[in-house]
Each structure stands twice: as C-alpha cells, then as structure tokens.
Simulated scan of single mutants.
Amino acid sequence: MTAPATSSLALDTAPDRTRDRSRTEDAILAAARDVLIEKGFGAWGVNAIARAAGCDKQLIYRYFGGLDGLAEALGTDVARAIETALSVAPSQPAASYAELVARLLDALVEVLRGNPLMQRIIAWELSEPNALTHSFAQARSRALADWIARLRGDLAPPANIDAPAINAVLIAAVQQMVLGSAATGNFAGLPLGDESDWNRVRLAIRSLAMAAYASGDPA
C-alpha cells in the first residue's frame, strides 16, 4: 500500500530541518566568537550576536536557551580546541612529574598565543567574573585536567609539595604573560614580540617548574 504523500514529505524534510538547525547553530557559535574577538564582552549580547549570525534572536533562545547556554556551548567549543591542541602525545613519556608540568606549561603557551578568543575570555574572567565567565573557566580547567590525567600515568609530585598551588601560580604566570603580550607586546619590561623573546619565557617557565619539584623538602 502506498504511503500517504504527507508521510513521505515529512520523511524527506526531516533531515533538511536537522541540517538547517545544525547550520544555524554553527553560524550562531561562529558569530558569538567573532563578536567576542572583535568587540569584546561589552558588546556580547543576544542582539549583536543575532545580527552577526544573520538570524532572528529568538533562535538563540530556542537552540541555546539564551546567553548562558550559548556561553556554555562556546566554552565547550573552546575546551575542545584546547584538547585538540594538546592531543598530540609526546614521542617520549615524561620522566618525572616536574617534566610533565613543564610540558603542560609549554603547550599552554602555544595554545593561548594562537587563540585570540581564549585570550579575550581569560581577560574577561579576570576583570568581570560572572556566571558566563565561570562556564568558560570550568570548561578550560576540565580540558587541562584531562590532559594531565591522560599523560600522568604513575607520576606524582614529591612529598610535602603543594602541587595544586604551584601549578596554579605557574599557569597564572603563563596566562598573564600571553595577555600582556597581546595588549602591549611586553610584560614587566620583558619584550614578548618574537620567538626569541618567547624562547626566553619557555626556558624560564621550565626552570621554575623543574626547581619547584626538585625535592620533597618544604621551602
């Protein structure tokens, strides 16, 4: 028996509707990234994003539930970018926890330097913490924690060393150096314009990581 025309039409158009929604969601996410990079969080609102995406702002509420949901989706997208950048396993496993941390910090320098969107997000987190920036920070923290868990194996910091505090200080240093480079091309008088400048930073960060975990004796 031949199926009614309406059933056939519904089957034919359902994939199109799915593809249209996927394209619209991608366009909204791309517009959210563009507005953030080009204009900053002061202009990051539903109306501006909808204009940049060329869609009705109601679609942002329909597909993302509003700015909170869009921030969460964008935070997940940023975290995925971090995971991708950190996904290449080194040819040799780290010989120590200090080496693992040094590699993480070196990789983080490259990830942050190459991602203006992430720089904007971190700057916003520092200047105006709120529910949206919390979503971004949580997504980024998960990506870094997953990277460490994947490569850590049996490595552990020496006894009597406050690894979470030390790692937080070192990560904050990397973030601040990258933000300073983007804003002024230097930080605390240290030039950060070319690769020779950044090689100095990499060596300094590595030295600090190796020294911090050199022994288990408390400072």
Rank of each mutant, 00 (worst) to 15 (best):
P218Q: 05
V109Y: 08
G216E: 10
L9Y: 03
Y213A: 01
R152Y: 04
G75T: 05
P157R: 02
I121M: 14
F64A: 04
V35T: 12
E72A: 11
Y61P: 04
A212L: 02
T84E: 09
G65C: 09
E25V: 12
L29Y: 09
W44D: 15
Q58K: 14
V111E: 10
A173T: 07
A219C: 07
H134T: 11
A85F: 11
R113K: 14
P218C: 01
A3V: 05
D194N: 02
S135Q: 11
L105F: 09
N160H: 11
A102Q: 09
R80G: 08
Q119V: 05
G180Q: 09
M177I: 11
V111I: 15
V109N: 08
T6D: 10
G75Y: 09
L208W: 06
T2C: 05
T6H: 04
L9K: 01
V174K: 05
V35D: 01
S141H: 05
V88W: 06
I37M: 01
G54T: 12
A173C: 03
D162Y: 00
V111T: 15
E110D: 15
E125F: 06
I28T: 10
Q119L: 12
I60L: 08
N199V: 00
L11N: 01
R206K: 10
V109W: 07
L108A: 08
A95T: 11
S215G: 02
A71E: 10
L117F: 11
